[in-house]
Design a protein around this nucleic acid. Sequence first.
DNA 1: CGATTCTTTGAAAACAGTCAATCTGTGTGG
DNA 2: CCACACAGATTGACTGTTTTCAAAGAATCG
Lengths: 195, 195
Amino acid sequence: MLENFETYVRGKGPVTEEELRLLIAKATVKKFRRRQLLVREGEVCQHKIFVSKGLIRIYRLKEDGTEVIMRFAAEDNWIVDHESYYHQTPTKYNIEAIEDSEVLLWTRENFESLMLVIPVMQALAEQLRVNSLHASQDRILMNISATSEEKYQDFVNTFPDIFRRVPLHMVASYLGVSRETLSRIRHAQLNQPKG
Amino acid sequence: MLENFETYVRGKGPVTEEELRLLIAKATVKKFRRRQLLVREGEVCQHKIFVSKGLIRIYRLKEDGTEVIMRFAAEDNWIVDHESYYHQTPTKYNIEAIEDSEVLLWTRENFESLMLVIPVMQALAEQLRVNSLHASQDRILMNISATSEEKYQDFVNTFPDIFRRVPLHMVASYLGVSRETLSRIRHAQLNQPKG
DNA sequence: CGATTCTTTGAAAACAGTCAATCTGTGTGG
DNA sequence: CCACACAGATTGACTGTTTTCAAAGAATCG
């Protein structure tokens, strides 16, 4: 379970054995069952979370009770509600395991102290922010300018590893279309697979 | 024209006369006419741009020639294509003045050297990233979960200073609805103003 | 003023959402 | 091993919304 994280960090830049040991020493390792909540709406998102195994979603509940999925995070991805984490305010999101999962957690305090000591973590944190922003921009562009078919196709292309593991109704929620519509789109694409 | 920027920076934290002088010395001041391009698709977005006066938009051209507006930036706002700026790669966006505008520009090199020397700029850059990310998240949520009426109402609430200055068809492009639909939505809200 | 840009309106067609019923696969307990 | 419950996916009929196209009406710039 920790091998994943080691491999991931080594892939990000030069890092010593000692640094790796420290990174892991400051983390908490946790397992979650399918459907178990990692963070509940109203709590403060205390940790940066690295998914070493499994699949996680972050979603929001609207007043009418419907779920809106903001993001999925599979192995080797980070998940956090930046707003709650940075300002230590209650989160509006729920973070939940879609599959049985294993994660590493760092408190903000621990994570920031690690960033001061371990060069590669600085760069990594910066990179994550830039990537987040970039991904958000692309998603906005898709949302406002693409047809439902294109949105679905883009999702499949962007997350080839994920789309088979996520129930279709969750993909629908992520894309902002009804599950019935998405079901029909997918059906149409099976008969006419051009993209 | 520089007073705006001075006031803005002072509002962000303690800053000395000397620091302010340096900030401005490293900047280029430029004026742009309505419809003039600040940055053209294919160029590298070389600068961080502060809008001291006027109104700017950043948009993208789709293959079919339609424009998709990513963001507006009025006085006291920054605009930059992070991806192009950060990686020094050609931008996919156009940045254009909607009104006659005045801006301050810093190259990445200059801006980063200033961040090293002037504490408040560090914090400011960090704050801008967090805000960008947060705004993007909120916009995605709106896009995938709200009705067109709600999207328009949210735009009006979020940018009370801007929405009267932007042509309706650009708001439509920003929201991802046709100009005709937005026209009808607005008409309906005039007769039934409840939000 | 004249040209251009922007907005509005109407009517038809395309699209997506809702509701209700059915179908499928999975896993649990008897 | 079977029956059942449950979550998920599909389908059809219907409704409502949005787009598109075409035309015309304001507003604005030079």
